Amino acid sequence: MYDIDETADFANVVVTFDNRNNNWGDTTSSTTAERDTITFSQGGQMGATYDITITVFDTDGTITDTVQITDVANGDSQSAGDLTDSDSPSFAGTVVDDLGGSQANYEVSYNVSDRANFGSVRVKYTNLDSSGADATYSSSDPRHNIDDYAEAFFGNTAGDSYRIRVELVDTDGVVVDERVVSDVADGSSPSGNADLTRPSSPALSTYSIADTTNNNNGRYTLQYLVSGPDTDFSQVEAIFLNTDRSWATQTKSSSNPDGTIQYNQGGVGGDEYKITIRVLDSDGIVVAEVTETDTADGTNP
């Protein structure tokens, strides 16, 4: 990603990616845009060392500037200078939630301010332990919840380490704001999450959790009441996170603002649970949340 100053005689930018290990991993790209993103992807080259040369030419074909960078292809970025403009969008807040279970289960919520030049939001998941579990998702909605990774199946990734990069892209395709977090997929969300509520957000007025576990069959009954405008309410989610047996973790939901959610799972009597109640607004963003811990033994938390 780059931005050119003093553009009166600007002609083009040429970027060369020189792989020190394999010549077939080299490439050269050129563009005439004054502000742009150039993307290069080469399979099988993670860990290789690259010499990256960025050359600027004027209308006479003369080189007016050159930047050289050496980098190892490992997901760690390098940057110099500020690519934002005075009218660039920015994150008003981001949330990265780790929902736990037998596989990595993540979702990202965000809100963008100064939206005139907003392009998209891109979320990149890099699994640092298991190959084949990387994924990238994007949205053109300036306030949204991206939960695609939660819906994908990446077996045996519970407990793996992740690098999650949330990028805000402007209309030129340049990243002007980002949040990068490292997390272990264990059901505990990383720190630094923002509050994305707004005046019209629904709220969790009351709730009760009844533990009716019997004969090693884990049973819970959740009763709840949501207050606030119905127009900004979408659903209530209840995450029953079994910290002893990940396969017994379940997420239940209801679109009723005044209702009951049931959990019933055999063979989990005596297990420890984290029960999280979440209220989602019309954008799918969590605007109210509470968590209770309990042992599935028939005694209410």
Rank of each mutant, 00 (worst) to 15 (best):
T31H: 00
V169Y: 07
S139N: 09
A296Q: 02
T66H: 05
S86I: 08
D232G: 00
V67R: 13
S161T: 13
V95M: 03
G43M: 02
T291G: 02
G25T: 02
D87V: 09
D232A: 06
I38L: 15
Y137K: 12
D65S: 06
V112R: 03
A210H: 09
R35H: 01
V236M: 06
P257N: 11
S41C: 05
L241Q: 12
Q42M: 13
R163A: 14
P199A: 03
D297A: 01
T55W: 00
D129A: 04
N74P: 00
R115M: 04
R179H: 04
T59G: 05
V286P: 00
S188L: 13
T70S: 14
D183T: 12
T66A: 06
D183Y: 02
G119A: 05
T66D: 06
R179W: 01
V121Q: 04
A80Y: 05
A288V: 00
V108G: 04
S189L: 03
F118C: 02
D76H: 06
G100M: 08
Y125H: 13
T7N: 12
L204D: 10
L128R: 15
I164N: 10
N193E: 09
P190V: 04
A92D: 15
R20L: 14
Y220S: 03
A92S: 12
Y110R: 05
S234D: 15
G44K: 00
F57E: 12
E289Y: 06
D186K: 00
I285A: 06
A73P: 09
S77E: 10
E34Q: 13
V56G: 08
S254T: 03
V184D: 12
I63V: 15
A92R: 11
F10Q: 09
T243V: 12
A248V: 01
V123P: 04
A133R: 07
V226H: 05
N105F: 08
A104P: 11
P142L: 07
A92C: 07
A185D: 05
G100F: 07
V14H: 03
T295G: 00
T293K: 03
Q45V: 09
S200P: 00
P142N: 15
S246F: 09
F57P: 01
S201F: 09
A92Y: 04
S182P: 00
T94Y: 02
G187M: 07
D195A: 07
V67S: 13
D148L: 11
N256M: 06
E178W: 07
A248P: 01
T212P: 00
D134M: 11
V121A: 03
T291V: 07
R245Y: 11
V67Q: 14
G187A: 04
D244A: 06
H144K: 13
F240R: 02
